[in-house]
Design a protein around this nucleic acid. Structure first.
Length: 776
DNA sequence: CAGTGAGCGAGCTTCCGCTTGACTT
């Protein structure tokens, strides 16, 4: 018989701890929560004080059975789930399900996986904190009530299978409101003035100095006037200000900051970051990756000190303890850091290497000294104007943490590369080489990326490290949001150049508004959001989570009972659900665009059964209304009358090729060319079905033909339905509309008819694959 | 998949937070 059974949440953690504890201890994992509210109905007895009905989750039955066996064989059970609300609840559910007795059950907690921390925990056991468990139950029940009562309202009023919840609906709201800010944004322009000067110092050396006017001119007129004045001006250094400044390293990574930096520096999606981090964690290379804590264990700090000293020298060491700033942090774990600080790289996939190195650098930098800088601002007066030029420079006196890590910023326009200035003195005269005035435009607020949305959610205290990635993917799966690249547009801007006493005006062009991996709300996302904000403003409020968190805290302190809290919330909420079902009509987002000049009928945009459409006329008239779908990058909210009229120009005859008509149109999978009943997709962001010409169409048809030829690896005379094809995931066999993978051991080109049939038969023997849910 | 947009009805969908596999035609 084993003396002691320790139960933790994660199997990787179990493995590590078992090493620390020795022979008398067996360590098992619960794999997170083992039971949850029943999925049928609500799982909550509304007539009976909101009594929750808990069931053991299907995928946890095996785990529970094994834990039961392990309990039988142990004298003392140590419940070692995380030290936070959810962890406390996990321990409580375990003690209920495993029928643990108080006499031989101990609750222990540690928030770092080090030998000292664990031995210390064993020395200081406690009992389950039922008040904290109750706070978790309140959280769980509230979320279920909100989610399972709101979602069906959407099914009835908008579309089946939609969803709403405390976290996801606010995430969508952030995106919709940002999109509106962008639509409402009025761009204005001004002229930025940059002067290039030459200066000859006493030592005979000549230097270039670049200086900028701190203000922008609003109009071309003013700009020209200013340049005219500069023509005959003399320029002189009037002031030199040197200011020391310092930069401090950022704290070690939490889940959210790791997701942000991996997105900015490595281009990872939020879920990609988590998958790669999970791999590193399971391999024992980093600490736990779902954490809101910036804390480092004493051992980690000691290791960092050693590593920094060895690599860069003692003077680069500066030990720091960081404090978590984010709302609602529960700090059950350490920050995300390498397990062994002396390893600055790791083996593994490219992604694993890159992410590991990022984590290593960030952790090491967090224990290094501030960077010391000296900023210099030099004021240059203009004899003919009251304006001044400013030349600024920056010198690094001591690089400190910058030796290993520079944090990236979401703000792309941030200036970099301010360098060294020549040793100028007050009164020094400068010769003007040229002055350039460039028209610059104000930028609309940036669209969210996955990672910047996570950052915003964390700031609002909404969601947890374990749910950021799933939330981001849920709102995309529901069709509320698309993650997309968008091509920018060409914009022209004016440039005035003063050189050799002449002012030359020219037009230049730049690409603006291009977006990479940004989140765009869809029409459905906007309709759902507006409906929810209109009818359930309290839950959609950015402070809703913060408000209920305060009450959860009261419950955890024993100052409020959870049924009382839920009892206060639910009746009014439920009443609102019923009145909304009864009183509101289906929101279609209908908007009048104008009058069709050809027929004189009204043109409207609205949500149709299969997506957003524009309609000419209405049902009440004798004539059938005409319909057209919006293109993928058009929004109901912003489409104009002209754009709508263009949609009715499709399908459009492009020309003829090989004796048959070539047509352009937009289908469910985007714009396409139709020729001889065959479809050829138009290239996203390149071709426009309204403008594509016959030459381009033929080019696309040819390309597709070549592609299809390469697709076929082998066909068989025995059976025309059987083919070996080249696909996205490598070679496969296609037979009777089903696909089968070609084993890696076989060369697809050499497969015989018989071998193919064997492969098909083999793969049919395997248990039926879980079919992915069809998402429309 | 390359059209559709009516209306009825059965049966389904759905939340947030803990965890990891099992998937990848």
């Amino acid at each position: 018989m084993e003396e002691n059974l320790v139960i933790v949440e994660s199997p990787a953690k179990a493995k590590t701890i078992e090493r620390f504890l020795g022979k008398n201890f067996v360590v098992r994992s619960s794999f997170g929560h083992i039971r949850d509210l029943a999925k049928k109905n609500l799982g909550i007895d509304l007539k009976n004080g909101f009594k929750p009905e808990y069931v053991i989750s299907e995928d946890k039955k095996k785990v529970v059975d094994e834990l039961k066996k392990a309990v039988k064989n142990a004298k003392i059970i140590w419940l070692a789930s995380d030290e936070d609300r959810e962890g406390e609840a996990i321990s409580w559910h375990l003690s209920e399900v495993l029928k643990l007795k108080e006499s031989n059950t101990k609750r222990i907690v540690f928030n770092e996986i080090t030998k000292d921390a664990i031995l210390n925990a064993i020395e200081n056991p406690r009992t389950i904190d039922k008040k904290l468990v109750d706070a978790q139950q309140a959280r769980r029940i509230l979320d279920r009530l909100v989610g399972f009562e709101l979602s069906p309202v959407l099914w009835k009023k908008i579309k089946p299978s939609l969803s709403a919840g405390r976290v996801q609906s606010v995430a969508v709201r952030l995106l919709v409101e940002r999109e509106r800010e962008i639509n409402d944004f009025k761009t204005s322009s001004g002229y930025k003035i940059i002067g290039l000067f030459k200066v000859k110092l006493d030592n005979g050396k000549e230097y270039d100095v670049t200086a900028e006017l701190p203000k922008k001119f609003n109009t071309l007129e003013e700009t020209r006037k200013f340049l005219e004045k500069c023509k005959k001006a003399s320029f002189e250094v009037s002031d030199i200000v040197k200011k020391p400044s310092r930069k401090s390293p950022s704290p070690p990574f939490t889940t959210s900051t790791l997701q942000q930096e991996a997105s900015r520096k490595l281009g990872f999606s939020v879920s990609q970051t988590m998958t790669v981090a999970q791999k590193l964690y399971e391999a024992g290379k980093i600490t736990y990756m779902r954490t809101d804590s910036v804390n480092l264990s004493d051992t980690a700090i000691a290791m960092s000190r050693q590593t920094i000293t060895n690599s860069f020298g003692e003077k680069y060491v500066q030990i720091r303890q960081y404090k978590t700033k984010s709302k609602g942090a529960q700090e059950a774990h350490e920050a995300i850091r390498p397990t062994y600080m002396d390893k600055d790289t790791t083996a593994g996939s490219n992604a694993e290497k890159k992410l590991y190195e990022l984590i290593w650098k960030r952790t090491i930098a967090s224990q290094m000294g501030d960077a010391l800088l000296e900023k210099t601002n030099i004021t240059i007066t203009i004899s003919t104007s009251t304006e001044n030029f400013i030349a600024s420079g920056e010198v690094i006196i001591f690089d400190g943490f910058l030796k290993v890590y520079i944090e990236s910023s979401d703000d792309e326009s941030e200036e970099n590369g301010k360098g060294l200035l020549p040793p100028l003195k007050k009164g020094q005269a400068l010769t003007m080489n040229s002055i350039e005035a460039t028209e610059r435009f104000t930028q609309h607020p940036p669209r969210y990326t996955e990672a910047s949305l996570v950052k915003k959610l964390e700031e609002l205290g909404i969601g947890r490290p374990s749910t950021y990635a799933p939330t981001i993917s849920t709102i995309q799966q529901r069709g509320y949001v698309l993650r997309e690249d968008r091509q920018g547009e060409t914009r022209t801007f004016k440039v005035l150049l003063l050189k050799n006493s002449q002012i030359k005006e020219s037009l230049k062009s730049e690409i603006t508004g291009s977006e990479k991996s940004k989140l765009f709300p869809t029409d459905i996302g906007i309709i759902v959001n507006d409906f929810l904000v209109e009818n359930f403003s309290d839950i959609l409020d950015y402070n809703f989570t913060a408000l209920v968190e305060k009450e959860f805290d009261l419950i955890a302190e024993g100052k409020l009972s959870w049924p009382k809290m839920i009892g206060k919330f639910y009746p009014a909420f439920h009443k609102k659900i019923e009145s909304t079902l009864e009183l509101t009509s289906k929101p279609k987002g209908e908007r009048l665009l104008g009058i069709d000049p050809a027929s004189g009928k009204k043109i409207t945009v609205r949500m149709g059964r299969y997506g957003p459409i524009v309609v000419i006329g209405d049902k009440d008239n004798d004539e059938k209304p005409r319909f057209a779908s919006l293109m993928k990058n058009q929004l109901m909210e912003t489409i104009t009358l002209d754009e709508a009229l263009n949609l009715f120009k499709l399908p459009r005859v492009v020309g003829t090729f090989e004796g048959s008509e070539v047509k352009a149109n937009v289908g469910r999978f985007g714009p396409y060319i139709l020729h001889n009943n065959k479809f050829f997709s138009l290239k996203k962001g390149v071709d426009d079905p309204l403008e594509v010409n016959i030459d381009r169409a033929i080019e696309l048809i040819d390309q597709k033909r070549v592609f299809d030829q390469n697709k076929l690896i082998k066909a068989f005379t025995e059976d025309a339905e059987l083919k070996v094809l080249n696909g996205r995931f490598g070679p496969y066999i296609s037979y009777q509309k089903e696909n089968y993978k070609v084993p890696k051991s076989k060369n697809p080109a050499d497969l015989s008819y018989k071998e193919c049939l064997t492969i098909i038969a083999e793969s049919k023997k395997k248990p039926a694959r879980k079919k992915f849910k069809k998402t429309k």
